[in-house]
């Protein structure tokens, strides 16, 4: 009798052990990554959102702040500068992305694909230089490049043909902000697109030539369709990094010239939270701005996935995992 009663309990214990054993390997494999993500991404995000719900600033210090709910978000929504900063952000991201990070990168990748390996290598390394140059040095170079006479390179060169010199960055701040970021950013797309183009079999181009396709038709009908996935990747990735990067703007125009001419969202957040003109840096408001930026980035990513029909691009995994 006793033995019979004990049996189900033992079986239950065995079942529990099996479940644990089954759970052990996923926990083992996923654990480190989950910990890292929690510590480095999740926790800061939670802290940011938490701070955004307070009036934390230099004035309140860490002891006298209050929880003010969504007050900061209300401030943002009713800010008179909201439309201006938002418009600047969209202009900055879209212009840099379309003209340089994707557009120019594609042109570079396609052109270098037709060069010899050595020439293409030299050319690509040249375009990598802005990326490996410290941003402060690069920004200083561009400032001197655009400076008024007798210093600025642009002014000197244009002076030779009789065009009066002035500070070109003040005259065309957006051109410089976009070009500077684009010169740094284009190499990323160029490398991604170049390797994708290198993966297209040469026979496909030969077949197209036999069929009478011009160089342009080969690019349009063979190369570009096969770059859909890399273009999606570069677009999404660079959108997010452009949304959050403001160091080149900070180091060149610093949001100017004049009032908020080139002030983008992340720079606006930085100015309010960490570098306030009046000395009273508003951590709470800055955190709220950062949180809004995350939502904007997520929204943009979702739109991209839709536009590029991401679902069709994803292949089944090669390695079967139960």
């Amino acid at each position: 009798m006793g033995a019979l009663e004990a049996a189900p309990a033992a079986r239950r214990r065995g079942a529990v052990r099996n479940v644990l054993r089954g759970a052990a390997s996923p926990v083992f494999f996923l654990g480190p990554a989950v910990l890292l993500i929690a510590a480095l991404f999740l926790a800061p995000a939670v802290v940011t959102v938490a701070i955004s719900l307070t009036n934390l600033s230099v004035a309140t210090g860490l002891t006298h702040y209050r929880w003010i709910g969504i007050g900061n978000y209300g401030l943002i929504a009713h800010s008179p500068w909201l439309v201006l900063v938002l418009r600047n952000t969209v202009l900055y991201v879209v212009a840099t992305l379309v003209l340089f990070n994707v557009g120019f990168a594609l042109v570079l990748a396609i052109l270098t694909a037709h060069l010899s390996d050595r020439a293409a290598g030299v050319f690509r390394v040249l375009w990598m230089l802005p990326r490996i140059t410290p941003s402060v040095i690069l920004a200083m170079m561009w400032r001197w490049f655009a400076a008024e006479p007798p210093y600025g390179t642009v002014s000197q060169v244009l002076g030779l043909v009789g065009i009066p010199g002035h500070n070109w960055m003040n005259a065309h701040p957006w051109a410089f902000v976009v070009a500077l970021n684009g010169f740094v950013g284009a190499s990323f797309g160029m490398i991604i697109f170049s390797s994708a183009i290198a993966g297209i079999p040469r026979d496909q181009y030969l077949a197209a030539q036999v069929d009478g396709a011009s160089a342009w038709q080969q690019v349009w009908r063979i190369t570009l369709p096969r770059l859909r996935w890399p273009i999606l990747f570069v677009t999404a990735y660079q959108t997010l990094s452009l949304l959050t990067s403001f160091e080149y703007i900070l180091l060149t125009t610093n949001g100017g010239p004049g009032f908020y001419t080139t002030e983008v969202w992340s720079l606006y957040a930085f100015h309010l939270a960490l570098s306030n003109y009046f000395g009273n840096t508003q951590f709470g408001l800055g955190a709220a701005l950062a949180a809004v930026l995350v939502v904007l980035g997520l929204g943009a990513s979702l739109v991209y996935l839709r536009v590029f029909r991401f679902g069709e691009l994803v292949a089944a995994p090669r390695i079967e995992v139960n």
Partner: peptide, 17 residues
């Protein structure tokens, strides 16, 4: 050019798009 010669060609790899 191949076009002017009026050739059709099948490649070893087929080279389909």
């Amino acid at each position: 050019t191949p076009q002017e010669r009026g050739v059709g060609m099948v490649f070893q790899s087929y080279a389909l798009y």
